[in-house]
Structure formats: structure tokens, C-alpha cells
Amino acid sequence: MKSFTRHRRLRRTAAMRDMVRETSLSVHDVIQPLFVKEGLEEKQEVSSMPGVFQFSLTDVLAEVAACVELGIKSFIIFGIPIHKDEIGSQASAEDGIVQQAIRLIKNHFPEVLVVADTCLCEFTSHGHCGILEGEQVLNDASLERLVEVAVSQARAGADIIAPSNAMDGYVYAIRKGLDEAGFEDIAIMSYAIKFASSFYGPFRDAGESAPAFGDRKTYQMDPANRLEALREAKSDEEEGADFLMVKPALAFLDILRDVKNQSHLPLVAYNVSGEYSMIKAAAQNGWIDEEKVMLETLLGMKRAGADIIITYFAKDLAVYLSKKGG
């Protein structure tokens, strides 16, 4: 009679477990989000995101320096302007808050990667991600504005353009616009699969970007849909995306794996604000071990297929890895 298999042999000691571990985390896997607010005199903590701040231009340099010291080399920039209008004019302004932040960071830390979030919601008076006609978000008119934003961000020194607006054809339009402006080497990190999720609430506090009316369900995806996600990823890849992203990540690990199986492009998981804040809140109440749950969460995203994770836990992860010597 065949004996049973002793799987526990490979779990017997810490050294054995380290040797056979299939998935690992590194500071090279993560991108640190940064919120830069125009007119701010000193950084201020986001009430719904403990440990996350809106930064002034002066303070953001100190934050980047602290991250670089921990080994973090990649940042995604979100901007909050003083002036907002119907078309989000400050999003493409040469002296816009995102453009100023990019130039400042690249001048002081030329070795880091700066990703520019390319959207209009933080810059429009109505809080939607495109140009409106009444209460309808116009797709093609929005593309024209988004190309202007992307080119201005590339001109400021962004290494990667990350369009998060969820308009149809935005990768094609931005790729064409960047190429025509002489930025053929600037990569596009597409928010290819962006669900109309309830996990974004704390981000809208941080980015001051909640819609003034309605919701974003006509341009962001229904969380119930899986095959649509694969169609979205395929079309963005065909239009010229260099990276594909799934946002949010935690409730959509199956989508991460599906996209990984379909595409050979680098895959990004966005560990979004609600996922972060839930862990922070539960830890503050003593209900969970924050560090262990953070690690399990990020490992789950890597195991599901993510090559890169945008996460507000980037610094916490870097501190943990430095303690572990890894």
C-alpha cells in the first residue's frame, strides 16, 4: 500500500522554509505614491490614511530622500492644484503642481523613476476624469486633453506616463501624442483594468478628487466582470502599453492571474487606499498584526502574478526588509 506524502519535511526548519520559498518581496517590486499639494506650507496627514501625507514641494524632497535611503527607487506622483476648472487646465500647465514636482525630484534624484498619474479628476471642478457635456463624460474630447497632460508631464521629466482615466483609446492616443512630441522612449503604464470600486474612498480624501455628482461607472469597469477585463488588457497591449495594471488588487487576484496568463508585459497591481486603510485601522484596534497582514497581502499579489506593486506600504515593507537583511 502506498504511504502518504510528508509535505512537512520541507517546512521543518526556518532555513528549509527559506530555501523552498516560491515568492519573495523586494524594494525593487514597489512604487511609492506621493501626493503633492499646491500652496501647502507643510505636510499634512490624510485623516483616513494613517501614515500617508499630502506634501508641499519642499517636504516631498525630504520624503523622497527618506525612501531612497530605504532602497525605494520608484514613485508615482498625484497632484492637488489650488485652481480647478471644467477642463482641468492645471493638469497640463507647464508650472502645474505635478510638473513642478517631477522636475524637482528629477533634479535632486536623477536616478529614481518618476511615474506621472495622467488623469483630470484631481484638477477638474466637477471631479470627473474627462470633459463633460452636461453630466456625460465625453470620450474623444477627453482624449485630446489627456494627450496634452501626458506630453507636459513627459516634458517635465516623467519616466513613465500612467493614464488612469479609463477612457477608451487612451493608450493609442497618448502613445501617438508622445511619439509626435519626440518622447518615443517614454513608457506607458496603463491602468488597463480599473474597476469602479468602493475601495477608493480614502484616496479621494488624499487627492481631493471625489466626483461632485454621480459616479464613474460609465467609464470604470463593473467589479462583476472578468472577461471584460481580459478584453481591456488585450486592447491596451495592442495600442502600445508597456505595462498593464489591475486596480484594485486585493479583491481581484483572479484577474491578476488571468492577465498574467494572457500577457507577457510587466504586470502592476495597485494596492489601493481602502486596502491600506483597512489594515491600518484593524491594527490600531489591536485586532491584527499589521506587519504580518501587510506581508501576506503583498505576497498574495505577487503570487497571483504581479511583477510590480503600487502600495502605500512601500516604506513599511522597506523597513521590514532592512531588518531582515533582504
Rank of each mutant, 00 (worst) to 15 (best):
A166I: 09
A166H: 03
A166W: 01
A166T: 13
A166L: 09
A166F: 10
M167I: 02
M167L: 09
M167N: 03
D168G: 01
D168T: 11
D168H: 08
Y170R: 12
V171M: 02
Y172T: 14
Y172A: 15
Y172L: 15
A173G: 03
A173F: 01
A173K: 02
A173L: 03
I174W: 07
I174T: 13
K176Y: 08
G177P: 12
G177R: 12
G177I: 11
G177T: 12
L178S: 02
L178H: 03
D179R: 14
E180T: 12
E180H: 11
E180K: 15
E180P: 01
A181G: 02
A181F: 02
A181R: 03
A181W: 03
G182T: 07
G182A: 05
F183T: 07
F183S: 08
F183D: 08
E184M: 11
E184P: 00
D185L: 11
D185C: 08
I186N: 00
I186W: 00
I186K: 06
I186F: 01
A187M: 13
A187L: 15
A187W: 03
I188L: 09
I188W: 00
I188A: 01
M189Y: 00
M189T: 00
M189E: 00
M189Q: 04
S190G: 10
S190H: 07
S190D: 06
S190M: 05
Y191M: 06
Y191A: 05
A192G: 15
A192P: 08
A192W: 05
A192M: 08
A192L: 09
I193E: 02
K194R: 14
K194T: 10
K194W: 03
F195S: 01
F195N: 02
A196F: 07
A196W: 06
A196N: 14
A196Y: 09
S197Q: 10
S197H: 08
S198C: 11
F199Q: 08
Y200W: 06
Y200C: 03
G201L: 12
G201E: 09
P202N: 08
P202L: 07
P202K: 06
P202E: 06
F203Y: 14
F203P: 07
F203S: 10
R204W: 08
D205R: 07
D205L: 04
A206H: 11
A206D: 09
A206S: 12
A206N: 06
G207F: 00
G207Q: 02
G207D: 03
E208V: 10
E208W: 00
E208Q: 15
S209G: 12
S209L: 04
S209H: 05
A210L: 14
A210K: 15
P211N: 13
P211H: 12
P211Q: 13
P211G: 12
P211F: 13
A212D: 14
A212Y: 09
F213Q: 09
G214Y: 05
G214Q: 05
G214D: 06
G214E: 04
G214I: 04
G214A: 06
G214F: 07
D215T: 13
D215I: 12
D215V: 13
